[in-house]
Design a protein around this nucleic acid. Structure first.
Length: 122
DNA sequence: AAGGTGACTGGCG
DNA sequence: TCGCCAGCCACCT
């Protein structure tokens, strides 16, 4: 192995995946009936302070896309969509449809429905 | 290429 | 607990 090529033996340099695409890839793995915060997604992706970026990315996800964007909520367990009550309502219904419960204040209990990532507990 | 926006957060009163 | 505020970041002009 000392004979390794000095140059990059690797084929062409693949275009770096955009942050948004990485967000989608992870979100696609959130199990049904579970939820995670924007900051949680950011942390798992290795950018613990990019919570805002996660929100930006998800806001661009097309509805007919197979990305369960509704499983991502804010740190308080609340629906965080602003400026579009219709969409916010849809998110809540989609979660409830998979049995995620909202308390009286409209919050989801992390202990019961939180997803800790691919490497975390089931 | 620099400035504006917002589906975020942690810290503090 | 709740509201407010200043960072922080990826996107879009």
């Amino acid at each position: 192995m000392t004979a390794r090529s000095p140059a990059k033996p690797r084929g062409r340099k693949r275009p770096a995946p955009t942050f948004a695409s990485r967000v989608c890839a992870l979100v696609r793995r959130i199990p049904r009936g579970r939820a995670i915060s924007y900051g949680g997604v950011a942390a798992i992706l290795g950018s613990p302070r990019a919570a805002r970026g996660v929100g930006t990315a998800l806001s661009g996800v097309e509805p007919d896309r197979d990305v369960p964007w509704w499983r991502v909520i804010n740190r308080n367990g609340e629906i965080s969509i602003k400026g579009d009550p219709i969409l916010a309502g849809l998110q809540r219904r989609l979660l409830e449809k998979e049995r995620v419960k909202f308390d009286r204040r409209g919050r989801v209990d992390w202990e019961s429905f939180g997803w800790r990532g691919p490497s975390g507990p089931k």
